[in-house]
Design a protein around this nucleic acid. Structure first.
Lengths: 194, 194
DNA sequence: GTCAAGAATCTAGCATTGCTAGTTCTGTGG
DNA sequence: CCACAGAACTAGCAATGCTAGATTCTTGAC
């Protein structure tokens, strides 16, 4: 069945093509510029083929987001491993903010725009779990306390990322904010109470 | 000139009517349901009158946001004043999160959706400055250190607010997260370094 | 009171959007 | 070589933000 086999391969290739085209277009001109017509033109097919691959436009964005979760996890992992253990929080968080600044449109698809992707649930996709695991891991062993700290610092990082790329907070001072944030979280008491 | 005077009054009344109608519709069904047609129907005028009051649809949303900044500042102020001084950070931050949870659509217009409103600039509208001032004030006198802490905690609060209302973080645990956040920020050293 | 000037408001329409029904083309198996 | 299945396209629908042009309504001079 090499015939249908080849078809399968070509189909997968086109699937990837659509995702990367959407990503590039979004990164270049923002998600509001990603219309089904422009996207179709970009991949050199007509609109209906997009719907042969994805249920609707949002599903395409979700696919871009999923790709992003993988990359984000990878970036945080590498940053943590290539830094001394005493700096693992700082390195991981720095990688997070760097990713958000480098790929604002992908970041938007992951964490800002409406999505069908399930967070903190049984159906949460593996790359997302892995990325969050990196954040927890930077605090040490995976126990309840570190998970809580990781969740909180994730919230903080997300806030900083989104407010600065959205022009609501001066982006220049992001480094200082990160320093301050890491300092506060490193002072965290080992048990609750002082 | 009571004639033109009355016209002026009616015009102002309708201006307010449009804003509150947009707000209610957004809060009830989300901003994507706020179309110019539905909004026009709701205020019982035709579409073009909307454009006699606002440059475009986004300007209506910005007007809703501006109203929100006033209310948020007010809420934080009241919370801080009716709490013991030792709890002012906690009270102010609690009010922030409460506002975000109570008025998700308004919060979205203020801090998430694209906007023409200038943040951290000379043209920043007074209600926005006042609201941020409340946050700074909860840390004590308005100096550089407290401003930096306020900016950072604002980022953190925003992250928590947006991730929990967006279904990306379980909303039930918001109280615990707030406790943890406030504990970390209360431990902040007075001068940089340990 | 009448009637033209000007303001206020509406109707109707444009271009663009996401999505799809129905037709045409293409390549494969007999 | 041909009939047929699947793939791709054309053309269109309903809804969107916004606006030009027609229409109605108010106002003030005579």
């Amino acid at each position: 069945m090499t015939a249908t086999d080849r078809r399968e391969r070509e189909r997968a290739r086109r699937h990837r093509l659509i995702i990367t085209a959407a990503r590039e277009l979004a990164e270049a001109e923002g998600w509001e510029a990603v219309t089904t017509r422009r996207l179709a033109e970009r991949v050199e097919y007509s609109q209906p083929v997009l719907y042969g691959h994805f249920a609707n436009k949002d599903a395409i964005r979700d696919a871009v987001a999923l790709e992003g979760f993988g990359e984000l996890g990878e970036m945080m992992r590498e940053a943590r491993l290539s830094a001394p253990a005493s700096e693992s929080i700082r390195a991981t968080c720095g990688a997070y903010l760097e990713f958000a600044a480098m790929h604002p449109a992908v970041y938007q698809a992951m964490f800002i725009l409406p999505t069908e992707t399930k967070f903190a649930s049984a159906e949460t996709p593996a790359p997302l779990r892995a990325a969050f695991g990196e954040l927890v891991g930077s605090f040490g062993p995976d126990n309840e306390r570190n998970a809580a700290l990781a969740e909180l610092i994730w919230g903080s990082l997300h806030g900083l990322a989104v407010l600065s790329t959205g022009g609501r907070m001066p982006p220049e001072a992001q480094g200082q904010r990160l320093d301050l944030l890491v300092a506060l979280f490193s002072n965290a008491p080992t048990r609750e109470g002082t």
